[in-house]
Design a protein around this nucleic acid. Structure first.
Lengths: 258, 258
DNA sequence: TCCAATGTTGCGATATATGAAACTATAATT
DNA sequence: AATTATAGTTTCATATATCGCAACATTGGA
């Protein structure tokens, strides 16, 4: 195996603990020892002891009634540290707020991790529709507006890597042809914004623009997301304009000029 | 020792990993292997392997240039799951937004963990003053407005427990006399809000009100924080009124009536 | 009251995490 | 440019901490 030397000297008990943590999801935020043991193929006692250790440091907390575990506050504390030290996060809060008020749709700040886009910040609009993203969510870059912006401004090596990756059709609108996608990304870079019209989720459209740091590198993207009934094709341009303005304002604050 | 049986069967390598994660702070968001080894009294190689394992699951990420580690996106993802499954979090976003606009100060939602208050949500105002809290921050309950609200509505056993705990004077305004604090809490419960005038941090005032769930239990608190120049004593009542209105609106959304 | 299901604990076997030292890789100094 | 110095990774032998099993405890249901 190729990855052998990488995985060789990993600590298995630590790895177990991390896999346990990552098995918590939006849909299953509570877990029992036996469930975890079964789903991860670990022994009950191993899981029990791992959970005790995680609980002792506040990474999970146990409901004494139901004996179920949920993620603990230590994780919130760590996420707070990540945010406090992410320049984009600091500078974007008020601008995001203005944008959400103006457009009336939920906005995200995202960064690229490999070929995925990760939402590091989210500000919800007032519409009562519950949304499907959350901070930390990982989505494929090639079919989301934020992802396309980030990839489009990445180096050619990264673009190639993505074009050669599996381009699964999430909806009938997903661009799965590498050539077409390549041309599409070129246009995204030229025009300074990207949109995704139901390319990832049926009925969901989004528009995104790049955020630059002081070196002129694109380090994040700003996007607005909403149902296709509200983000209609003929509104792309005017909304894009506002998104670009906001993203540029954030870039300004990060020391970008020109 | 009493805690012996508890700590007996904890997994030490997992514990090391968690201690490493928790050693990241706002002031030191980046760490080197040797620093970690020194500060935690662990062997270099132990830390190196632990970090590799943490990195392999995205809990930390290594800057290939500087070889320094920082907290990774997996933690953000987990925090997103916590938030998505916290009703208060879901329902409070827009209301928090309105409140911050109205008052012009930073607002927090907090919950109680033992005798500490933990900020689970924060919305910053536009004032350029950088603030000293972050999501996940843990502060003593007895000298913060949010903490006093939460303790005041807890059961008598908890209140006693707090009164018997160490009441350190963070400033000259901190209430350290148990009797006085008890009376103070009683008033907080009667009036339906709490304030802290420099009781925790010099020059920083705050005002908080309780958030109720559908069972009528106080599960969180809403607070606004700002410098004493802006949150002056004569403004306590009018601000408190607005905070209470907002917290009640959140409670409404959580199904609280009456 | 008994049974079933689940979580915790004791214990021995052994896989595995550890520390020391060798080995790289990178940065600093001359 | 050559040489130290510094820091991170990896090797290896060893001891130890982790694991699985089984016994035990606890809870809830029949």
């Amino acid at each position: 195996m190729d990855a052998k030397n990488n995985e060789n000297h990993l600590l298995s008990s630590v790895r177990n603990a991390l896999l346990i943590l990552q098995s918590f999801t939006m849909d299953e935020p509570e877990k029992k020892v036996s469930d975890l043991a079964a789903s991860l193929g670990l022994n009950k006692s191993t899981v029990s002891r791992t959970m005790s250790t995680l609980a002792s440091e506040g990474f999970v907390s146990k409901d004494p009634e139901t004996k179920k575990y949920r993620l603990g506050f230590s994780i919130l504390a760590l996420s707070g540290i990540i945010n406090s030290n992410t320049d984009v996060y600091q500078e974007s809060q008020p601008i995001l707020k203005k944008l959400v008020e103006d457009i009336g749709e939920t906005a995200h700040i995202s960064v690229l991790d490999n070929l995925d886009v990760i939402y590091i910040q989210k500000l919800e609009c007032n519409h009562p529709v519950r949304f499907l993203t959350h901070v930390g969510k990982r989505n494929p870059a090639y079919c989301t507006s934020s992802g396309k912006v980030l990839i489009a401004h990445a180096d050619e090596r990264k673009i190639q890597q993505m074009l050669e990756s599996e381009l699964n059709p999430f909806t009938k609108y997903t661009i799965t042809n590498p050539k077409e996608l390549h041309a599409h990304l070129k246009k995204v870079k030229e025009e300074g914004f990207a949109f995704s019209m139901e390319e990832f989720l049926e009925g969901v459209n989004s528009i995104a623009a790049p955020i630059y740091d002081y070196t002129g590198k694109v380090i994040a993207s700003l996007s607005v997301v909403g149902p296709k009934q509200r983000i209609e094709p003929n509104k792309i341009r005017p909304i894009a304009k506002k998104v670009i303005n906001a993203s540029m304002e954030i870039s300004d604050r990060l020391g970008y000029w020109r």
